[in-house]
Design a binder for these strands. Structure first.
Lengths: 213, 213, 213, 213
DNA sequence: AATGAATGAGTGTTCATTCAT
DNA sequence: TATGAATGAACACTCATTCAT
């Protein structure tokens, strides 16, 4: 017996089922909106019975959140693929913030869910937290940021960012305010205003396209 | 007796009711999405009975379309407010196209309905047609465009524009393609490719913020 | 000024309106059933506003009853046209009973309303009463029937007749029982059983076709 | 293990549920008409939740059609019980035609739906087809009828028969025309006119009463 | 008296969720 | 654990009825 099967056959199959479900839900919810997507259609697309879905997700809402988290993890991965080459963790973090704000205001799949901002902020806190917190801690260690509790900082930032995105899509905040939004959020890391501005406005590479589905 | 009562008391009240309905629907549909908005809630917000709504709009869908048209008319008005100062009608038209594409990809209220592109294209054809067609004809008269049937041209353009916006929000077409999209649509007016590119890329002023709700 | 205008211009117009309404309602209710007929459709067919109907009939039900009564008056008139030639009032009455039972079980327009038997019995009591009571009284005067209160007799007969018709259309009573039903109802007039049977089974002429509409 | 379970426990329960639903619907629709019957009332009478009905019938209309088909199957069974003793399949078929026409013009439960003649003709085609087609084919084999495509013949006959019944209940065709209608429909089987008339007018036994409910 | 806009109770239908198998 | 039949709350929509004009 191997020492670390780390995941038995059963667990593996469950994970695959879960992923198939998220995949199917993502496709359908993206295509026709969360409300118009029915649990039965999702279950059938994932080739399983209607009741089975509830063994994996407690409610349609929970499934929608999982879809959202998967979108966010995808975004996080795409950010990673770009920032791998960065040496400055502060820059990685800043790029991440900008990418999130851009995506939230432009990707319809996010927009579909944006009107429930607490939910989305929460999903973002969980899904992107590991990366964001890691970067903040690294940048703190490198003397760039000054952060005592990166988790708290990230939580605040999530709510602020999603709130801003919501205002922008509703037209109550101009898109042109994006750099200012990023700047202020960077200030929360303990960075001085000028450095924050520099980071926010620095010319950053483009994000690779979203993976299909 | 005034010479042009042009609108009786009854007609005036009906128009007001209709507008109150669109106003209420716009607020609620924008806030929580078209599907999540209920007709009863809309009726109550507009301070009327549930059945009354159906004296003005044949279905929830029709009401949603009316909301959309009102958003488009608002956009058209905002475009007018900027382009008043333009001397070149071709430039007015180009600015209009760009503004529509930007709005369609950024304003969540449009996004809510973007997955029914024919409906939205149709609403756009009707709501913005008067302005667009006028500009095309003026530009043709001024020798800038060469268009035989401006109505047809506008219809095609509407479908192409909404189609592109849909692809962009789904991530199947990068936002960076916007100038190219505008260029090609301008080519449909008979403008040469280079002139079209010039117009599409010319530095244009910003649109004033959307009127609240 | 004529001595008996008996009906002024206004009253005449009202009567005409009332009749137009019954005519329209009769056509539509007959065509698609009472429930499927809408008051608005009826009003439009009669070329008047929706509210006007309620100046003439207190409710849709009342209108339906009026339609029914008009059908019954038509039936009564058709019976009269046949029985004019009869010398024996008892035979007229018997023929009337048979005609009503036949019509009630065969004419779809009656069937549409038959499941509310008290209403229909009541309408029948009023609409055909004048004729039936007259015949009963004549037959009594001629020594054929023995009836103290023809009105009461007629009321009982109406309920019994409609009840039987309802049972027959529901299949709970065979159509073959018709003569027996008629016989027993004739007995109520004081006629002996044998005479009643004779009358019920006597070969009677056919009823002329219903007038269209 | 039994050789032919032919129907599992689940399937059996579903069939029972379906039948309970038809039974309840039949009772209520017959009692108060199709329109006045509400789905909730039917569901409650069948002792189940409102939504369950829609797991068995796609719409109220579909349920009404199923009720109709069940009435027709009942009629077919009653015809069978009489014609078992017949030796001549042509006579069986003729008796069937006559029974259908009589029932359609007399049974209120049929009348309730008669104003949608295509639907009823279709239901009749399906519900009674197996018997009618069998008889036509037997009679053809016996040299009485001459029919190439019994299915087609039956389809035409259904529409003609229901059409005639509709005219009769509306009073546009006298009930006295029944024998002629039957005669002409029998001619469609290739029978000569005289033979058809003989069959149509032959003295046939009475149909047993409808089963309750 | 006539009108038709406003009303809201009532109905068909959908669908997230539960639970017996 | 997977299933899908059963459930009932919720919602879009209809239409008889009222009432201000």
């Amino acid at each position: 017996m191997p020492e670390l099967p780390s995941e038995g056959r059963v667990a593996r199959r469950q994970r695959r089922t879960r992923e198939a479900l998220i995949h199917a839900a993502s496709a359908i919810m993206t295509e026709k909106g969360v409300d118009a997507a029915t649990m039965l259609e999702i279950a059938e697309r994932a080739d399983m019975g209607a009741g089975t879905v509830y063994n994996y997700f407690g409610s349609k809402d929970a499934l929608a959140v999982a879809v959202l988290e998967s979108l966010m993890q995808d975004l996080a991965r795409r950010i990673e693929s770009v920032t791998d080459a960065f040496e400055d963790s502060a820059r990685v973090y800043a790029f991440g913030l900008r990418s999130v704000l851009d995506t939230a205001t432009q990707d319809a799949r996010w927009g579909q869910m944006l009107h429930r901002s607490e939910v989305i902020a929460d999903a973002m806190y969980r899904a992107m937290g590991p990366f964001a917190i890691r970067d903040m801690e690294r940048a703190t260690a490198a003397g760039r940021f000054t952060i005592a509790d990166a988790g708290l900082n990230w939580r605040l930032t999530c709510h602020a960012l999603i709130g801003a995105a919501l205002l922008m899509t509703k037209g109550d905040l101009p898109l042109a305010a994006k750099p200012e939004v990023i700047t202020r959020l960077l200030c929360m890391t303990g960075l001085g205003l000028e450095s924050a501005q520099d980071l926010a406005h620095s010319d950053l590479p483009a994000l690779p396209a979203a993976l299909p589905g």
